[in-house]
Design a protein around this nucleic acid. Structure first.
Length: 262
DNA sequence: ATGTCTACGTCTCGTAGA
């Protein structure tokens, strides 16, 4: 089973690129972030034509997440991250697909920091940590997939010293990420490539992709049962180099489902 | 400080978010 996460940065303008990538790589599950489209403007027909059923939460202008499943219907488990009824940003969706609980998330960027946006990011992160604890305790096979807007370590950024005051790399952000990991999650990319510099994002400025000035901020975190079934993980890096690309590249894992207890 | 891309509203440019 292949599960991918891809911040597409606008499903409207990126639909051709999305369909091309889906056709090429045929992930069983695709978690998308930054739809940047209201609920009614999600291109459901085109997604269905590509062979996928979808759940999504839209929002005008910003945010928005979706879970696509190939040849099957994802069963909605949760819409929105618990812990703050006043939070109206579309950033979290959970679905069950073939016995796997898939959480698709888009953690707030948090810049500029310090400030209210950074406070919102940290509060959102704490809500995620609380909810993730419950998911792990359930014993279910779970993957937390998405754009975490968090650079875990110095190995995950081309030039760490330039990013120390950025919301993606500030000590508070790294601390939250590491406390989440300490619950018992496995960082799939890092576990398959312990010492390699692997990026999932290159910003649009100053030819960042051409210079390979990237960040690793899109993650797939696995519960113990899924970690034992992990056979491959990587980034479809070339997608970032195509026409009208997202600033993120798709990131994916491969699971051997025969190794998952049912 | 800069750079690039997107969506929206003030609507074919300016602004904000990333």
């Amino acid at each position: 089973m292949r599960i991918a996460t891809f911040n597409i940065n606008g499903i409207g303008s990126r639909l051709p690129a999305l369909r091309e990538w889906l056709e090429e790589t045929q992930p069983d599950v695709a978690c998308l972030q930054e739809l940047k489209a209201p609920q009614e403007r999600f291109p459901e027909a085109a997604i269905n034509e590509a062979g996928y059923q979808a759940l999504w939460i839209g929002q005008k202008s910003w945010n928005g997440v979706a879970i696509l499943a190939r040849g099957t219907t994802p069963v909605e488990v949760r819409r929105g991250l618990p812990g703050d009824d006043a939070d109206e940003q579309s950033r979290y969706l959970e679905a069950a697909i073939d016995g796997v609980l898939v959480a698709c998330l888009y953690l707030p960027n948090g810049n500029p920091s310090p400030g209210p946006k950074f406070d919102y990011k940290l509060a959102w992160f704490e809500r995620l940590i609380t909810h993730a604890e419950g998911l792990l305790a359930s014993g279910a096979p779970v993957v937390l997939a998405g754009d975490f807007n968090a650079i875990p370590t110095e190995l995950d950024v081309y030039k760490p010293e330039r990013w120390v005051t950025d919301a993606l790399f500030r000590p508070e952000t790294r601390d939250a990420f590491h406390r989440l990991m300490a619950q018992g999650w496995t960082d799939a990319l890092r576990s398959m490539h312990p010492d390699e510099r692997i990026f999932t994002f290159w910003d649009y400025f100053r030819d960042a992709y051409g210079r390979d000035a990237g960040l690793r901020i899109d993650h797939l975190l696995l519960s113990p049962m899924l970690a034992g079934a992990l056979t491959a993980a990587n980034v479809d890096r070339d997608v970032r180099g195509r026409e009208k690309p997202s600033d993120h590249a798709p990131t994916w894992i491969e699971l051997d489902m025969t190794k998952i207890a049912r």
